[in-house]
Each structure stands twice: as C-alpha cells, then as structure tokens.
Nucleic acid binder design. Structure first.
Lengths: 139, 139
DNA sequence: ATTCTTGCAAAAGTTTTGCAGGCAA
DNA sequence: TTGCCTGCAAAACTTTTGCAAGAAT
C-alpha cells in the first residue's frame, strides 16, 4: 500500500515538502486550491514557497497520486481521492462534495462501440443547490 | 426560435461583435477558445479586440446562450450547443467530440434523495484515446 | 438623450520557470 | 558526487477592467 502512496523513487527523490503536500491532500476532503495548501503548510514548513507547491502538484498529478479539478473560477483544485467518484458542486455556496458513483460501465461500453474511441476515464459533476443552501430563503 | 438565439433586448443592445461571436459559436463544433474566436473573426471585423471577445462571452454565458468548458490546460473553451450532451476528450490529440448522452435521470434522482441536494445540471466527460490516434503506433 | 458597447492599454490573478544554493541518495 | 529539489523573483499567460469615444435605441 505504501508503494502506491509515493512517487516513483527511480525518478524522484523524497522531499519533505512533497510528502507534506501529499499527506495533506490525502487527509482532507475539501478539494483545496494551491493557495490553501500553501497557507496550511507554511506555518510548519517555514521556507515553503508557492513555486514548490505548484511544482509538486504537477509531479503528483503526473504520478497519478493527485487529480486536478478545474471549475469555472480560474483556480484549480486538487484531490487525492483516486477511486472513481463524482462531485456535487453547489452553485450558491461553492461547496464541493464527493458522491460515490462508480464507473458508468454500461454507458462507457456503448459509447466505445458507437465511436471507436478507447474510454479510459470519466468525469462526472452534478451542479445545483446543496441541502444547506436550500433551507435558506434565497432559494 | 430567433428569440432563443438572442440576448435579452431589455438588458443588452444588439452589437455586431456579439452577433458574430454567437453565430460563429453556433456554426462550429470545435469548442473554440477565446483566442481562436478572436483570430477567426478579426479579418472581417478589423477593430475587434480580445477584451470585447471576453466581455461578450461572459454575457452570452450569463444569458445561457453559451457554455464555458474548463479543461486542465488553463484556457477556457466555449460551446453554443445547449442541449444536454457529453464530451469525449482525446488525451493524445486533444480533440473534443460531442456525445449525445441525455441527462442521467435515474442517477440524478437517486443522488437527490440520498443527499437532499437539488441537482440542476450535470457535466459528463469521457477521457481516452480517439479512434484516429488508436490506429497510430504510439498507442 | 440615454445607455450600452467598443478598443485600447493597463491591471489583476494564477501558474510557470531560471537560477544559484541545498539536500537526498 | 550526482542529480533532484527548493526558495526567490521574474516572467508568462489568460482574463478582467477603467476610460473615453462610438453605436444603438
């Protein structure tokens, strides 16, 4: 299991900064931005810089330990939950919640046959108003 | 039908630039970037500027005549096909193809009951290797 | 006449990169 | 020792915005 949780050691060394970034992403479920990660880790890693955060997020993404999510806001978010799942995004408060929807196997097969493409992954987001926001008056 | 193809006239005037941007998006199916739209229209609209392109894309998006797609590249793409559909994105050549997958009604209901959220829209992308790229050696 | 729109240029905001020094193997 | 990694700062990019002039109603 620990082998799945580290970068390829033949290609990358172990650095404290990268370890902390990965551990943090694996512990939280709030799909943080690079800025949030930086602010969170900075107090315990005094010399940390944004360049390092961004560089490592790219490496972790390339090593398939982290996934990048781009919503419309222009700021990317990151997620270390790698099992296939979907997201619910509240268009009022912006909250992103994981939803356990497995791969849409039937649909994928159907699309593969119809198009001749090889489908390797899916990305499924639901947009709407979350239950908390629904109970308020503005909706 | 033409009423559905224009912005709210009580709120916005008709401008040549905006008309051209919308028409272009309704004619093509290549999910272009703002830069592509600008380059395409510039020859016939000599004074066009990028600021105008971006401003109008926002207005068209707000009027629900155009949808914004953010892939991981940091450059947004735009789509005037407003019927619910999915996308196939080739991770080799980058091509984006429309797939006619309607709303996942059953799944949406299930998720709504389970979470209490109100689901208003879905976004479904398939990622993989397109049939053209599959026939080449690099895969 | 009033209000929306444009082009231009500057600004804003996020992400990337070059470099010299530091750390890991 | 070799090569990856970091911090810093500058650069690169995409997108937004202020403003004065122009167009639409």
């Amino acid at each position: 299991m620990s082998e799945l949780n580290t970068v390829n050691p033949a290609r990358y060394k172990r650095s404290r900064q990268r370890q902390r970034i990965l551990s943090l992403l694996q512990e939280v479920n709030n799909h943080p931005t690079a800025e949030w990660i930086y602010s969170y880790l900075k107090p315990g890693l005094n010399s940390l810089s944004m360049g390092t955060v961004y560089r490592n997020l790219r490496i972790l993404e390339e090593q398939e330990l982290v996934r990048r999510m781009c919503n419309g806001s222009g700021v990317d978010r990151f997620d270390a939950k790698m099992e296939p799942h979907s997201h619910f995004i509240c268009r009022h408060c912006g909250e992103i919640e994981d939803l356990d929807v497995g791969p849409l196997t039937g649909l994928i097969r159907e699309m593969e046959v119809m198009t001749g493409h090889l489908i390797e992954a899916q990305r499924l987001d639901f947009l709407g108003i979350c239950s908390k926001c629904r109970t308020q008056k503005w909706h």
